[in-house]
Design a binder for these strands. Structure first.
Length: 897
DNA sequence: CCTCGAAGGACCC
DNA sequence: GTCCAGGGTCCTTCGAGC
């Protein structure tokens, strides 16, 4: 436990005074918190003599510094203890003189310039300014602190070296070799053996080869990764149906509801599929067995019983219990009930007592390999292992977490609420904190936490923590059983922390940061800033060289300066990071904002080639748009010259487009402009891209990586929401619920923009006005199957879409031409006529529409949207600030008063 | 003075 | 011999228009 002196953010008068000193003396050493070491050499301008690799090719300019932006980023997993200098030297040698390198140098200079400006600015601050700034910062801190929400249990699941792991799984000979997945231009990922050489994702293959001449590079196989990703997601969905996939190998889950014991509980039981078990047998070649079969549970029952009586007995018996499991050397892997309840964890988590046992189903074959978590909980150190080591199988057994059938210790609502904590002060915390400023916001009657000091509450809390760990372990095991790939997980009260935690015990480990404020602050204290989401190369450089802050605590100590130097947005974000705050809402309802395609090639410099390439890209993009049923109002191009300079140009179309030629006509203009403006020099490109933005959905749920909001109708830049947001599964459900008769197809074929807008409004009107009980909310055209859209085959006034024999039992889709708005509307319903009439009425009562729309787009929609979100969980205290931490830029305010 | 759109970047995986 | 991706999101700056 850190003493307050060591980690005293708020009573940092000394630090604060040091700032003044810094101003007067420019004495960096007094400014830097002596307890921390610089992360990188350029933390301190004076420290430059770090070997050749660090001194840059100075050419003419003696002021030139090293291009630190090209350095290896070793903050990621599996990169500890590398000879960074040597690696950086090799990278430098391989890059020197290239166009890319020159460009990096240029960008580095720009960053330097910014840093110098900031430093100048900082030197000009008066004490008065700083005092004021500190007050302002503290005020924000206080608000943020008040919004701190520790009630959610967020899990970040991250597959270990995913692509590489997949390739190794399918070709075990790769396991013993350093290998990477990608191409010679760029690597996507590398295995842990390769990482020992400094080979990592985002590195060009040829440099990786220099670092590790034996490196095997395997081509990417995205289809395969996607398929496996689906399998992983099936597991994740058991724990949180609304989990948020971030990429193929990474996702956030909110398992709070699951922990309450009611979500997904009975979904999977007894349905372990044959093929699953076969898969497992088939693939396991090394044959080391670590699975365990639980039989009688008498012993364990006893252990649990005794646990409550006597601590000593608890420990010993628990040990025994573990031994029993191990000694037996049973070899059957069992699938157990979803909900694992670890009843007691022992000090240091050396072992666990798992209480009973309801075997739902055993795999057909008794022999199943099961890899062991090397480390299961925080506090104990686990050495890094390579894949080669991991497959050796010299591992300890660990009982598979089992479900506690006798739920005597099920957390009751009461204890849960305590855990969840209004104001969340946990045992021992108030003492530890003393009268520190940290306590702000916790002073009133509602913060009477005396009840938490009672033993039962502590025990229950412990139980809860154990349960959390077990659940996540179980999840990871399921993933492994299913895919033979390991995942790491971070568990924390918010997404930011969960992310950091998942990295902590990689590979194949997990880390639980318990929802206690002082634990979080401890955790965050020495956290390198670079680990924080949204702090990349540049921000890190700025923060270290301007603020001399390497860790979150140091950042916090400079909050007054942040206040003066950065934009309010950036400032708040930094404060959130330094306080360990992050989003507690795993928000899947994110809508895709743009869609693009780009490609790198050998130099292209002839206009006709430019245009040909552009057309190609437009075609690709058009296909993507069509596949997602999207149209775009903005079309942009991206050009990268052979010197790596990037230009983007955007144009707003007068109506939403989707077709290749439509896209091309806009993109072409932009491109030609650039060709012209570069002339008489040829436009020498190495990359071209086309982008579509301001997307409008043409119906259907967007099948992008995240389930999306349906139907955002945009007009004049302002968003007016029409229909209730549904995620994909909800949409599917409601679609089922409504039945096909509620689906409406609309003719989109050749609409003008005006038509499109009008059309949207009409759809919306239907949404709003329809009073059909089952459709009052979901009645949009969003569920129309793809083949119903476009309606290219509708010509008549009322034409059936299917052959009549097919349509006998189902209602025939019928197309009408609306005499008012002129649109073709298809209704698949027995009462199509009625619906049509309703539509016509709507069109006719145009005057009523604005009012409706207005109302709808006002509070109504917001409310509806909120309630439609399955989990509106912002506690009443939760101010708007903390909830969503957005990635941000750390730009600098132009004028800080 | 405020709002918007375009351009440029930073960052993430 | 190979010589730094591609698909996104969000933020800031800055000039134009109201």
């Amino acid at each position: 436990m850190a003493s307050n002196e060591e980690f005293d953010f708020l009573s940092d008068e000394e630090n604060f005074e040091n700032d003044w000193k810094f101003d007067e003396n420019d004495d960096i050493s007094t400014y830097i918190n002596s307890s921390t070491t610089p992360l990188s050499a350029d933390t301190n301008k004076e420290v430059v003599n770090l070997g050749k690799a660090m001194t840059i090719v100075a050419e003419n300019n003696s002021n030139e510094r090293k291009v630190s932006r090209m350095d290896l980023n070793t903050t990621k997993a599996g990169m500890d203890g590398l000879d960074k200098d040597k690696i950086n030297q090799i990278i430098l040698e391989a890059s020197k003189g290239s166009k890319f390198y020159e460009n990096e140098k240029k960008r580095e200079k720009q960053v330097q310039k910014r840093i110098e400006e900031l430093q100048r600015k900082m030197a000009s601050f008066t004490n008065e300014q700083k005092v004021k700034a500190k007050q302002a910062a503290d005020k924000i801190v206080q608000e943020l602190e008040q919004g701190r929400d520790l009630s959610r249990t967020i899990v970040h699941v991250d597959m270990d070296a995913y692509y590489a792991a997949v390739e190794m799984r399918d070709d075990p000979s790769l396991k013993s070799k350093p290998m990477a997945v990608g191409g010679s231009a760029m690597l996507c990922t590398s295995n842990y053996l390769a990482r020992r050489y400094g080979v990592r994702a985002g590195m060009p293959g040829f440099i990786a080869k220099k670092l590790c001449p034996n490196l095997t590079i395997v081509r990417t196989n995205f289809d395969k990764y996607t398929k496996i990703s689906h399998e992983i997601r099936e597991v994740l969905a058991e724990y949180d149906r609304n989990f948020l996939p971030m990429s193929l190998d990474e996702a956030y889950l909110d398992i709070t509801d699951y922990l309450r014991g009611n979500e997904g509980q009975n979904k999977r039981m007894g349905e372990v599929k044959e093929e699953e078990s076969k898969d497992i047998e088939g693939k396991h070649d090394t044959g080391k067995i670590a699975g365990v079969k639980f039989e009688s549970t008498d012993t364990q029952e006893n252990v649990c019983a005794e646990t409550k009586e006597n601590d000593k007995t608890k420990t010993e018996n628990a040990k025994d219990a573990k031994f029993i499991v191990r000694v037996k050397q049973e070899t059957k892997l069992v699938e157990v009930k979803q909900e694992t309840s670890k009843i007691e964890a022992l000090p240091n988590h050396d072992f666990e007592v798992t209480k009973q046992v309801k075997v739902e189903r055993a795999f057909d074959d008794d022999v199943t390999k099961y890899k062991q978590n090397e480390k299961d909980s925080e506090g104990t150190h686990r050495p890094n292992r390579t894949e080669a080591q991991e497959t050796k199988g010299d591992i300890e057994l660990e009982p598979i977490p089992l479900k506690a059938e006798t739920a005597k210790h099920e957390l009751d609502e009461n204890s849960f609420n305590q855990q969840k904590g209004e104001g969340m002060i946990t045992v021992g915390q108030s003492e530890a904190q003393g009268e520190s400023d940290w306590d702000f916001g916790h002073g009133s009657s509602e913060n009477d936490t005396s009840f938490l000091h009672e033993e039962p509450a502590v025990a229950e809390q412990e139980m809860f923590y154990n349960k959390v760990e077990e659940v996540v372990k179980e999840m990871r095991r399921k993933i492994e059983v299913k895919t033979q790939l390991t995942a790491s997980a971070g568990i924390a009260p918010n997404m930011f922390l969960a992310k950091v935690c998942s990295d902590k015990n990689k590979p194949n480990g997990q880390f639980y940061l318990k929802p206690e404020r002082d634990k979080i602050m401890d955790f965050v204290r020495e956290l390198p800033l670079r680990k924080a989401f949204g702090i990349g190369r540049v921000s890190e450089q700025i923060l270290t060289s301007v603020l001399k802050a390497n860790t979150c605590s140091e950042l916090y100590d400079r909050r007054h300066l942040m206040q003066l130097l950065f934009t309010p947005n950036a400032c708040t974000n930094y404060l959130e990071i330094s306080l360990g705050l992050g989003s507690t809402v795993v928000d899947v309802d994110r809508e895709r904002k743009s869609m693009s395609t780009e490609t790198t090639f050998k130099e292209i410099n002839k206009p006709e080639e430019h245009l040909a390439k552009c057309h190609e890209l437009c075609q690709e993009l058009s296909e993507s748009l069509k596949a997602h049923r999207l149209t775009a109002r903005k079309i942009g191009i991206k050009l990268k010259t052979i010197n790596f300079e990037v230009k983007t140009r955007v144009v707003t179309a007068s109506f939403p487009v989707q077709q290749t030629e439509e896209l091309f006509s806009h993109a072409k203009k932009l491109l030609v402009n650039e060709i012209r403006s570069s002339s008489p020099e040829p436009l020498r490109l190495r990359l071209m891209g086309v982008r579509a933005a301001e997307l409008c959905e043409k119906g259907m749920v967007n099948e992008s990586k995240q389930p999306t909001i349906i139907s955002l109708m945009k007009k004049n830049g302002s968003v007016r929401e029409r229909s209730i947001s549904l995620n994909a599964s909800q949409a599917a459900e409601s679609s089922k619920a409504c039945g096909p008769e509620q689906e409406v197809s609309l003719e989109h074929g050749s609409m003008s923009r005006e038509d499109e807008v009008r059309h949207s409004e009409i759809c919306s009107d239907l949404t709003v006005l329809d009073d059909h009980p089952s459709t009052s909310k979901e009645y949009t055209n969003d569920h129309v199957p793809s083949d119903q859209l476009g309606c290219h085959n509708f010509h008549g006034n009322a034409k059936t879409e299917r052959s009549s024999n097919q349509a006998v039992s189902r209602e025939e889709p019928t197309t009408f031409n609306c005499p008012v708005c002129g649109r073709d509307l298809t209704f698949r319903s027995g009462n199509a006529l009625l619906q049509m009439n309703r539509h016509v009425d709507t069109c006719l009562s145009k005057q009523a529409v604005p009012g409706v729309l207005k109302y709808d787009s006002g509070q109504q929609t917001n409310k509806a949207k909120q309630s439609s979100k399955k989990r509106k969980r912002e506690s009443s205290k939760n101010t708007n600030r903390t909830v969503k931490r957005k990635p941000m830029d750390r730009f600098v305010t132009k004028h800080t008063k």
